[in-house]
Design a protein around this nucleic acid. Structure first.
Length: 418
RNA sequence: GAGCUCGUAGCUCAGUCGGUUAGAGCGCUAGGUUGUGGCCCUAGAGGCCGUGGGUUCAAUUCCCAUCGGGCUCCCCA
């Protein structure tokens, strides 16, 4: 196929009419469940200051070091948001949202941007939904957050997932652990994969995540962070797990789970799906007790997660889950002649005012073509309007599924369909 | 950012061991039924064979590059 002159950018896809109903259905589910959990929606701009993202997400993360879309205009440094925790924290601080009282339970959804090489389940413009609970360090908040996340997948019917959870402690215990990890690995440094050697100084935790075969033996016997948690973090983690048990949410503790953003403290979790291929994370999140201060606000412990909406869609397809109904319209006005078209135009309005969906042919086509079109649009009924009908004030109402017809006045038709 | 792989009608794909007018199914439009859809029949529209360059008498076919998709790594949602 010859490519058109103008196409969307690589990794940025259109959501066409055949797909958009699925998206709306998913969005509706998220709104409904958020309402049940008493989460309030927050919408922030698509662009943020580059410095916010660099500080918030972390200079050394892949997201910031190689995946952000950034540009300058005048003195301003713009970046397309790669995630929404930092922007939500920014809004929280900017608008002194702690003054609203209590803890803030926020949710969001929308497009994010990362300049990665696209593959299935990974695009440059993609969509996430997620929540942030700000102002509480109670393990209950962690678990409510996870419960909401799980609830979305459960409601949709995606039950084939694995919740992995870990605690990466506070910065002090993490530093102690990093050092212990380095001490453990150092004698075998030369035997580590090239990649892991690079990670050794900068981010040794990542070595635990390595998929390189030569690293696996070292990883298996490495010290685990759980042994380095201070009492507070350990108690916190135990409570999180106990509350998960209370909710009968099954999980796997994974001492090797570390996350890509620098801001995480204590609880970290991921939701993995076997139905996704190599990009198998449905959602991920954790606690970030120090980020609000980092951004310039008051000490505000917080926890949240983000979930990939495209990945959720892919899982639905793999599992043959239909998010949206077939398209349909209540009434299709089939017109024969100019007088009928004019009548139809005004009575379309009346039909819609009665709460029904209604449409007609705009192309002046034959009756057969109109009937075919009505079929394609999945019309429940057609109303056939010709000179005879206009004269008598009785129209042919055809039930498309049953192939039954009746002669009725317009008022009777509306009454019957309502 | 790296490796592999694919790229022919709107969609799914044949095909050309380089050689006159590139095919099918579905979809679309129209007719068969001058006022009736879904099935059937007929016809039509729709392709510089992703793009650019090279080799050649000749390239959709071979070579290179590029763009785009897929898979994998990295990383993440």
């Amino acid at each position: 196929m010859a490519k058109p002159k103008y196409t969307s950018h690589i990794g940025m896809v259109d959501i066409l009419p055949d797909e958009s109903p699925k998206w709306r259905a998913l969005e509706n589910i998220i709104h409904e469940e958020a309402k049940k959990f008493n989460f309030e929606e927050i919408r922030t701009p698509i662009m943020e200051q580059t410095e916010l993202i660099v500080r918030g997400v972390g200079q050394l993360t892949d997201i910031v070091s190689k995946e952000i879309f950034a540009f300058e205009k005048g003195d301003s440094h713009y970046v397309l948001r790669p995630e929404l925790t930092a922007p939500v924290v920014r809004a929280f601080v900017e608008h002194h949202m702690e003054q609203r009282g209590g803890s803030q339970k926020l949710y969001y959804m929308g497009p994010m941007f990362r300049a990665e090489r696209p593959q299935k389940g990974r695009q440059r413009q993609f969509h996430q939904f997620g929540v942030e609970i700000m102002g509480s360090d109670d393990p209950i908040a962690d678990v409510e957050c996870i419960a909401f996340m799980i609830r979305i997948y459960e409601r949709i019917g995606i039950k084939n997932y694995n919740l992995k959870i870990n605690s990466i402690g506070d910065p002090e215990s993490r530093e102690a652990y990093k050092q212990a990890l380095r001490d453990y690995l150092k004698p075998n440094f030369d035997k580590l994969s090239e990649l892991s050697q690079k990670r050794f100084e900068k981010n040794p935790l990542r070595i635990l995540d390595s998929k390189e075969p030569e690293d696996q033996d070292f990883i298996k016997n490495a010290p685990v962070i759980n042994d380095f948690l201070n009492q507070e973090s350990e108690d916190h983690f135990k409570k999180v797990l106990a509350y998960l048990d209370e909710l009968d949410i099954s999980y796997t503790t994974d001492p090797h789970l570390v996350r890509g953003m620098d801001y995480y403290t204590r609880t970290a979790f991921e939701l993995i799906s076997p139905d996704l291929g190599s990009q198998d994370a449905l959602a991920g999140g954790g606690r970030y007790d120090l980020l609000v201060e980092e951004i310039g606000g008051p000490y505000t412990p917080a926890v949240g997660f983000a979930a990939g909406m495209e990945r959720l869609m892919i899982a639905c397809e793999e599992l043959d889950i239909k998010l949206a109904d077939e398209k349909s319209v209540d009434v299709y006005f089939v017109t024969l002649g100019e007088a009928a078209r004019k009548w139809a135009l005004s009575h379309l309005s009346k039909t819609r005012e009665a709460g029904l969906s209604a449409t007609m042919d705009y192309l002046g086509r034959s009756m057969k073509a109109q009937m075919k079109d009505a079929n394609r649009e999945n019309a429940r009924y057609t109303i056939i309007i010709g000179d005879n009908e206009l004269e008598q004030g009785k129209f042919t109402l055809r039930n498309m599924k049953e192939s039954e017809e009746a002669q009725l006045s317009f008022d009777e038709i509306v009454e019957r369909l309502r």
